[in-house]
Design a protein around this nucleic acid. Structure first.
Length: 752
DNA sequence: AGCACGCCGACT
DNA sequence: GTCGGCGTGCTC
């Protein structure tokens, strides 16, 4: 059944000839396996290192893997490579990069390879596209629809059938009729060129002096194949995009490829059109939603080098480029660059590594760079390019705090919201004024649902998630209680589940739905819309609503962090923040920085258009460094303080944070193993103070996709090799029994 | 990730 | 007796 009988033995007829090279291929299979498996290379088979091969795997399976190395050696009774599998050859650079990522993330090499092997499912034949062109005399009976079609088909050019029908405003039936009459004829259209080459000199932009200086630096780095990272920092509207477009242009002139990494939500038509204005065509786009034939063609086009510029989400970083000459990471600070399932990696950092390995510059662009990137720039690991000015002298919105503490803390008591409302009198007045001027207002509250806590008025029972003991959030619109950690959904009961009292559920605290209710009663007749990630009707409907808002068809927008990024609302002149303190006490080491950036982004939504904007920020902690920095606009000082805090706490970028994720299908097992590891880590703290166990010993266990997960947080001094420590530790720790898995996330971005 | 092997409860 | 549930471990 297997080929053991013949492997290692030369077929009789060839035996007398010179001994054939005995070659062994070490192959990585794109499964969660770290080891390379060795296969005999049959005599006469041409194989290069990095080639894709079909190999037997297990008793009755085949797999497509990548040759990680070729060596001379005794094939013994190894199985044989079945055949080369076509597709791009993975270059030495790419394999080194994938190895590096696997080592860094402690992920199996096969899992990392799988991210680069987005293999087309099947080689499918070219679809024949039917074209239509004008061929004969006008039809005997002319109708208005028919004349429109003929007018649209004028000039003898080829038209796609559906395109032509759309252009003429008729159905395909009219065209079929004209084909039958002989006026039109069908023919085979040449395959569509999906990726027309961008033209570096299509529409050269006039740059300001600071932009020009930055662009010159980037052009030189591209031309010199200078493998280094740049931080390109500039406030919104300072022209960062134009500057890195110049680096893309230079890469195009050199005939090499550019990768522009963009957070997936920012891959909008707006961004692509901006590229098209500069380069004549839209860039190729890669993200999880690009599927089927388009994905296959793009994959092949990148590997052949034919596709010159790709704009992609983080997964685009792992593709087999033929000749990568530039990587741009736009909006470097975006948390979307962190992959938190499967292989845990941060695309921004991996981009810098790929640039090193491939020998090309990496540009990190942001208006609000993260602390780690700022420090890398300050320590001159990254070169720092600054665009200090906003285009056209437009000003940033004026931000004021609304002190909610009331009289006892010295604030003005009349600033507190009345009764059971959440909108304070100053904010309400500001909304009134904005409405009176016919402008738009945005009310921001980063909390989905109606109320974050539900309890029974009769017995005080709190509704908690049965899986992870987090509070269940009241979603009145969906008539459900929802766990925001694990997604558990329960019907909203009418009687208390503890004491049975009917209609005694009390909602505590505000969520966006509750604010929407308050807006509806306080501003009757105003058109209001609530935007959050559980918006009913999906992305398509959301997109339409956003377009309506931009067109001014809405007076008041109530939203979660969804409204903070990406979308531009030109008519928005007021932003009200209901609770700026959310997130400040979350225990997340990045809480302050995160909150600051979020509030900066959302208040920055005011006054993007013609008219100046302002923002009112409701808070119980007006003196908190985050709020104070936001009000004063002194971001630099805030970052300096926050950097110092991190240094004192030994957190990134001055140390490393890692979380061990322990997961099992059985809650008790996950708990027991996590406790054992925590004890081991604690013992390690005492022996080696460079490594510390952080966070609450009793972290919640949460259920994600059928597995209970526990997160153990560690920090270590920068020079301490956390990865090798964890590897050794896992090797020495009592073997996890059962279905327990341990994963590692270096520099995790979020903590519950 | 599959797929086989194996160890327990339910059935012709 | 053996069919099949899924828990466990291996794949050059």
């Amino acid at each position: 059944m297997m080929s053991f009988a013949t492997t290692g033995t030369t077929p009789i007829g060839v035996a007398a000839a010179a001994a054939p090279a005995r070659r062994v291929a070490d192959v990585i299979i794109p499964l969660a396996l770290d080891t390379a498996y060795s296969y005999a290379v049959p005599a006469g088979m041409e194989l290069l290192p990095g080639a894709q091969v079909r190999v037997p795997f297990g008793p009755r399976r085949e797999a497509i893997g990548v040759v990680w190395g070729l060596r001379a050696g005794d094939p013994g009774n190894l199985k044989q490579v079945i055949e080369p599998a076509g597709g791009p050859v993975f270059s030495d650079n790419l394999r080194s990069f994938l190895d590096w990522v696997a080592r860094w993330t402690l992920a199996p090499r096969g899992s990392v390879l799988a991210m680069a092997l987005k293999r087309p499912d099947e080689e499918r034949g070219e679809v024949i596209r039917v074209g239509i062109r004008l061929a004969g005399p006008p039809p005997k009976r002319m109708t208005p629809a028919r004349s429109r079609v003929i007018a649209a088909a004028e000039g003898g050019l080829l038209h796609g059938k559906s395109d032509l029908a759309r252009a003429a405003g008729v159905s395909a039936g009219v065209i079929d009729g004209l084909v039958d009459e002989g006026t039109l004829e069908t023919c085979v259209m040449p395959p569509e060129n999906l990726f027309p080459p961008p033209d570096p000199d299509h529409a050269v932009t006039q740059l300001g002096p600071a932009q020009e200086a930055a662009a010159r630096n980037l052009r030189e780095a591209v031309a010199a194949h200078d493998a280094g990272a740049f931080l390109l920092e500039g406030v919104t509207g300072s022209g960062k995009t134009e500057v890195y477009f110049e680096a893309v242009a230079e890469t195009l002139r050199a005939g090499r490829q550019s990768l522009i990494l963009v957070p997936e939500i920012a891959l909008t038509a707006q961004f692509l059109d901006r590229f098209a204005q500069r380069f004549g065509v839209r860039p190729a786009v890669w993200h999880s939603g690009v599927t089927g034939r388009k994905r296959e063609k793009l994959y092949a086009g990148l590997a052949s080098g034919e596709v010159r510029v790709v704009a992609g989400a983080r997964s685009a970083l792992f593709l087999p480029y033929a000749d990568l000459g530039l990587i741009v990471v736009d909006e470097e600070h975006e948390a979307a660059y962190k992959q938190e399932d499967g292989v845990h990696y941060h695309a921004r950092d991996m981009a810098v590594v790929r640039g090193r390995i491939d020998g090309c510059p990496v540009v990190l662009a942001s208006a609000t760079p993260t602390i780690e990137t700022r420090v890398n720039a300050a320590q001159e690991r990254y070169r720092h390019l600054i665009l200090p000015e906003r285009y056209g002298g437009r000003t940033l919105p004026a931000i004021t705090a609304v002190d909610l503490r009331g009289a006892k803390a010295g604030g003005k008591s009349d600033d507190k919201p009345e009764g059971d409302g959440w909108i304070s009198p100053p904010l309400a007045a500001a909304i009134e004024e904005t409405m009176a001027r016919g402008e738009q207002a945005l009310i921001f509250l980063n909390r989905r649902g109606y109320a974050p806590l539900t309890l029974c008025r009769a017995c005080g029972h709190r509704y908690e998630c049965p899986n992870c003991s987090a509070w269940l959030v009241d979603h009145r619109f969906r008539r459900a209680l929802v766990c925001h950690h694990c997604g558990h959904v329960a019907r909203r009961p009418s009687a208390c589940e503890a004491c049975g009292t009917v209609d005694a559920l009390a909602a505590c605290g505000p969520g966006v739905e509750r604010i929407a209710e308050e807006v509806a009663t306080r501003f009757p007749g105003k058109r209001a819309i609530t935007l959050s990630s559980d918006f009913p009707g999906g992305t398509e409907r959301m997109r339409r609503e956003l377009a309506d808002i931009a067109a001014g068809k809405c007076d008041i927008v109530i939203g979660t962090q969804l409204v903070a990024k990406g979308h531009n609302f030109p008519g928005m002149t007021l932003v009200g923040v209901i609770d700026a303190d959310i997130g400040l006490s979350s225990g997340d080491p990045r809480a302050a920085e995160r909150t600051f950036q979020l509030l900066q982004q959302v208040t920055g939504r005011a006054g993007r258009g013609e008219k100046a904007g302002r923002a009112l920020v409701q808070t119980y902690q007006p003196e908190h460094p985050v709020i104070a920095a936001l009000i004063s606009g002194d971001a630099e000082r805030f970052y300096a303080q926050e950097t110092e805090n991190r240094r004192l706490a030994g957190l990134p970028p001055f140390g490393r944070l890692a979380s061990l994720i322990i997961s099992s299908r059985h809650r008790e097992q996950a708990e027991a193993h996590a406790r054992a590891l925590a004890r081991a880590a604690h013992a390690m703290d005492l022996r080696d103070p460079r490594l510390t166990l952080l966070g609450p010993a009793e972290a919640p266990i949460i259920l994600i996709r059928g597995r209970y997960r526990y997160r153990l947080l560690l920090k270590s001094a920068r020079e301490f090799d956390l990865q090798s420590f964890i590897r050794d530790w896992l090797a020495g720790a009592p073997k996890p029994r059962g279905d327990i898995r341990v994963q590692v996330d270096i520099d995790p971005q979020s903590f519950f």
